[in-house]
Design a protein around this nucleic acid. Structure first.
Lengths: 129, 129
DNA sequence: TAGCATAATGATAACTGTTATCATTATCGT
DNA sequence: ACGATAATGATAACAGTTATCATTATGCTA
């Protein structure tokens, strides 16, 4: 049972304040810039604690982990290879099909992660220039 | 146009010989154990080269990248949190739904990765012991 | 409310997977 | 065979993350 300390509350507030997907480094920087005193190790531990309590969500990208607001209805992500923009989307049918596929293999699902890569509308236009 | 050197051929043969999902370290170890002389850097470059030519596929897991035989029909993965076992599965409908979702957001898809986490049949039984 | 066990903090060392460097060697087209 | 180009391998460097450890905060409990 992790404690919701002042530092963790600050992290949580920061993440809850927007739709952004934050990495640990961005979180420290934002908090320090806002006048808080917090170290990178504390941020890593805080993020892990908050996630374990279901207060925030995360996606594991190739290079780093990014955290976002908790969403009771699980959603997936589209990542733009051009600019890094992350778009969210949810699709009940996909979820259901996953469950069915797992069932067929004898798996008891605990979670999943679907990331789609491509170019967002803006970057597509720039490619054609 | 990368060259298919002796080292890269050895990597390719190793990966093609099974359904396993290899990380770079396992590849060097296997090749060295088999009497080959190859360095870790060469393996990393070889794996990247082979993948860029479509001769092998890869999945990016949280900690490391794993390589497997190329599969023209894209498949996704179920990873057992208990023992690390990786099961493959493919589902045309899921693929189609992803395309549709991307279209709706203005994304031009270039790829995707769906990883499901859970417990395989064997590990489920052990949990109940 | 004081005392105390437990957990969190923060600076930094350590670790892991991966990429860069660079001198040497192999490859391939002419 | 020559020469340009690319690959190799040992190792340094790098990025993200976790471990260590002395110090500080938290929140029971008496």
């Amino acid at each position: 049972m992790p404690k919701l300390t002042a530092q963790r509350q600050a992290i949580l507030d920061l993440i809850n304040a927007s739709n952004r997907h934050w990495d640990a480094d961005e979180v420290v920087r934002a908090l320090v810039d806002a006048g808080a005193s917090i170290g990178i190790a504390t941020v890593y531990r805080g993020l892990a604690a908050l996630e374990s309590q279901g207060l925030i969500d995360s996606i594991q990208l190739a290079d780093k982990k990014r955290y976002e607001r908790a969403d009771k209805a699980h959603h997936d992500h589209m990542v733009c290879t051009g600019c890094g923009h992350i778009e969210e989307f949810s699709h009940d049918t996909i979820e259901a099909l996953q469950e069915a596929a797992a069932e067929k293999k004898g798996f008891k699902l605990t979670g999943h992660q679907l990331v789609m890569f491509g170019f967002c509308r803006k970057c597509r236009q720039e490619l054609h220039t």
